[in-house]
Design a protein around this nucleic acid. Sequence first.
DNA 1: GAGAGTTAATTTAGAACTAAACAAAGTAGA
DNA 2: TCTACTTTGTTTAGTTCTAAATTAACTCTC
Lengths: 402, 402
Amino acid sequence: MAIHSSNRTDVNRSAILARLGADGPASRAELARVLALSPALITQLVKELLADGLLVELEQAPSNGGRPARMLGLATSAGHAIGVKVVADHVAFVEVGVDGRVVRSASEPFDATASTFIAELVERIRGFIAAGDGTTVLGLGVGVPGSVDRLGSGVVDSAQLGWTGVELGDALRRATGLPVVVENNVNALAVAERLFGLGRSHDNFLVVTIGTGVGAGVVVDGNVLRGASGGAGEIGHFPVADDGPRCGCGNDGCLEAHIGEGALVRDARDRGAIPPDGGIDDLLAAADAGEDDAIRIYREAGGLLGRTLAGVVHTVDPALVVVLGEGTTGWRHWSPGFEPAFRSHLLRHRRSLPVEIETWQDESWAQGAAALVLAMPFDAAGSAGDQGRLIRERLVGPVVRR
Amino acid sequence: MAIHSSNRTDVNRSAILARLGADGPASRAELARVLALSPALITQLVKELLADGLLVELEQAPSNGGRPARMLGLATSAGHAIGVKVVADHVAFVEVGVDGRVVRSASEPFDATASTFIAELVERIRGFIAAGDGTTVLGLGVGVPGSVDRLGSGVVDSAQLGWTGVELGDALRRATGLPVVVENNVNALAVAERLFGLGRSHDNFLVVTIGTGVGAGVVVDGNVLRGASGGAGEIGHFPVADDGPRCGCGNDGCLEAHIGEGALVRDARDRGAIPPDGGIDDLLAAADAGEDDAIRIYREAGGLLGRTLAGVVHTVDPALVVVLGEGTTGWRHWSPGFEPAFRSHLLRHRRSLPVEIETWQDESWAQGAAALVLAMPFDAAGSAGDQGRLIRERLVGPVVRR
DNA sequence: GAGAGTTAATTTAGAACTAAACAAAGTAGA
DNA sequence: TCTACTTTGTTTAGTTCTAAATTAACTCTC
């Protein structure tokens, strides 16, 4: 309700860095426009950032009718973020630059159900950091399949990992001494999409993932919707039938229990579309080969996803839907079911809502997690408590001001 | 992303008025705490508001261990807001004080499909205002069944009213010279709930209405979620079956086509639970009398609502669900179907989510619309353009400052 | 090639806000 | 009654930001 300007000390300084990191060089005037700050302030802040060595002045841009702009770029030494993707049987790591580009990556086995899982995880993380080239690590972003209660302490509840009330954030912070942000993995992807992807040009959009699980990240007015307990976007457990198959969450008829990877494989085995020991790759191959049962399984899944997403669209009214995840490799078979179901159930004036399918790489999940670190210092709401401030401090580094 | 302090000129002044209006008298220290502003600023702003005659200093509060607080109250002359509820065949008006209490109300026939509907509406509004006691009218809040693209211009699309692209806001503003805020009627209720109802103590909650239509207002981080085109919360058109009955929107299988008042009545007639010319009152009477078919119709509707709402809860993760609308008069018959379906489809850690049924009066819709006017000057986002500023100006009145 | 127009960046004066020190007005305990 | 403590409210100095005027650097047109 009330507006206050406490703790905003260098949020705008950070916003400048974020913009330059995400979108490349820009002029002072351009920064003023996109950040909705006065040119006067930009002049002032840029002067300080240049003095601190965080920015560099680049060549002049060609004039377009008036005084040509002097472009500003991020000093390359700004630092890296580390993204960690945690799943039941392994962890994946990436190290990314301030522009979101992956510098290096790794993947290691990991048993989330072991009693010593935190110690194990810490060891793996230390190993990955130690293998780096020594560039300042701004912080650690961790993506988990499940809901995260407070981004700061990082309290994780995850059926998939068998975790309840695990204070992962605090544990990792103590062990590594780094700023740590823990978040649901789909929400992390939504953040990445907002910073570096299609979401850059949209304040309201939906990120949907299909694969082992089904999930959504809801971006509203430029921010990821977390809800009262950090559990927003759990559309995998949207009930689509009263008497549907049992889901991993214990309920019946969840969307995920119908169209998750496990459900598709089970259906395919039952119908004989793939051998009894076949997997999702076999199903995709069968569909590619034109086998009716396989094609039908994908089409039905697409239809159910389309119908449910139409409802979700009516609920949150996004301007764009982005579909991501391992499952998108077979999207050509989902699409014939998805498109008619999705469009026909949308209200007329929203029928033309764009749906974009993004290419998917193994490291995308971890990349999303890393984006959390890059987004956090620029999140005015400060949802993760001190972490944003700590990351900012590491960003500015040991430079002495004034 | 970036923080800026433009146009915040008297937002905090307004926040003080809002707080005192909504929650009654408070001390300076208390205001500083709840508004998260410094005591120094409160002192400063209160000094000016007292000089302007908008606030009055009340008696001292009993000390609780230290210097006793001098309470502050709103000057009673602050003004009234007028709420208008527009439906296909009539309009309802209320005039409310800054505390949200209804001063007077009226209801008149109105044909939304007539070609001269704007002129008609203007005339009815003028009549209602003229019948008042002359207290300053701060502004006009209009609730419509449909989606509103920009709160400022108030562009309305409504299947129920047969309106597409009607610039109601601009038209009414020109005709009345008052600040005008047009909004979807369920969103208006959500605003009212946030200002004066159960939502005061929750930043994330869901308002659900059942009756002729079915709708939802989604409050996220204290603000009503409007989405990319103002259409968020349209859960009435959530598709719940591929081959369900045809809905008024033209699609098949919408939730509203299953459990809206029209659908219930149609079902009841088909099953012989009420006479062929019977209405919703007959259905309720039949259920009260213990007739199986009537009870079953309500229970099925409750089950479908419960299942769908469970999914919506997973999507936006509210801390509270408030059920409102004409339909709640029969809630005792919805409940046996709703409760099991809703709870059983929620994820375990969210099973105990509170669902509150609010009593409903005829004028509640219009009261919600009036709340728009009272909320607008205190909406820092300024979603309705100039309207908030205009209302603030009327609130401060002709007093000359300094 | 001399204005006229446009866009970029800086300077200056001042508004909005806060932190921290202070003053005021009470209670509670010896 | 004197001292210690608590809570409320004000003052002061300083920070962050903006608006508006100004300077700078270019293009376009005649």
